[in-house]
């Protein structure tokens, strides 16, 4: 992309991109730490996530202020406008991912007090898969890699399927062993949070596609069937 004639405009857009990249890095870090907290049941790590999330909130406001300023002062057009509008949305989405990670971290503190069950391993694996997609979509944003964004967008179904099978397993397990209902439902909420992080990740993939191509990514994305209780109860 050639530079703008007004170089301060380039600097503004670079600043927005840099803040988004920083938010992305932070969101990844929060999710990573939250998953470690689930895995190791380390409540210090959980605390750390809760504290770092504040920085993400601050960055969200910074991005919003920058975008509003660029729109008011420079009236961006075409792909510049798309970048600014997408950045406004991405800041919200990344902040949400931070919140969901924080929620996972908080729930991991409840796990710490309970006995270990096998299924927490599956939840962590689901988390790692989610983290991988988040990682890739942020790379797709930095390098404007449409193919990678589309690939992430298609693979969100893996997270949905992971969630559906975990849901079944956990419910089955809890029916057999009512003692672990407390623990099992914490894990269920954690899995639900991960599934939502997956949805936010596909949203970012759509935004990356839109920034580059200028049109929306079609809505023929493969989606997992909504989870149902059929075959579990019944």
């Amino acid at each position: 992309m050639s530079p703008h004639i007004v170089s301060a405009f380039d600097e503004d857009l670079r600043a927005i991109t840099a803040r988004i990249a920083e938010m992305g890095g932070l969101a990844e870090e929060l999710l990573t730490t939250a998953l470690e907290a689930v895995e190791t049941r380390d409540s210090d790590m959980a605390e750390q996530v809760i504290l770092r999330d504040k920085r993400l909130d601050r960055l969200e406001h910074e991005v919003d202020d920058l975008c509003v300023r660029v729109i008011a002062l420079r009236q961006p057009m075409a792909q510049d406008l798309r970048l600014v509008v997408a950045a406004l949305k991405m800041s919200t989405v990344l902040e949400r991912i931070g919140d969901l990670s924080k929620n996972i971290a908080k729930r991991s503190k409840a796990l710490a007090q309970a006995q270990r069950i096998n299924l927490s391993g599956s939840v962590v694996r689901m988390g790692q898969q989610t983290l991988r997609l988040l990682n890739e979509v942020l790379d797709a944003f930095s390098s404007r890699d449409v193919a990678l964004a589309v690939s992430v967008w298609r693979r969100d179904i893996e997270i949905d399927e992971f969630y559906n099978s975990l849901f079944r397993e956990l419910v089955t397990y809890m029916m057999e062993e009512p003692r672990i209902i407390g623990l099992g439902s914490q894990l269920l909420f954690i899995a639900k949070n991960l599934e939502r992080i997956g949805d936010h990740t596909t949203h970012i993939a759509e935004l990356v596609y839109w920034i580059v191509e200028g049109e929306p990514l079609g809505d023929d994305r493969p989606k997992g069937a909504p989870v149902s209780m059929d075959g579990i109860l019944g």
Binding site: S2, P3, H4, I5, P76, A78
Partner: peptide
């Protein structure tokens, strides 16, 4: 067109 409307060097 893109370069012109976004204020870039042609």
């Amino acid at each position: 067109t893109q370069d012109y409307i976004t204020g870039r060097f042609g």
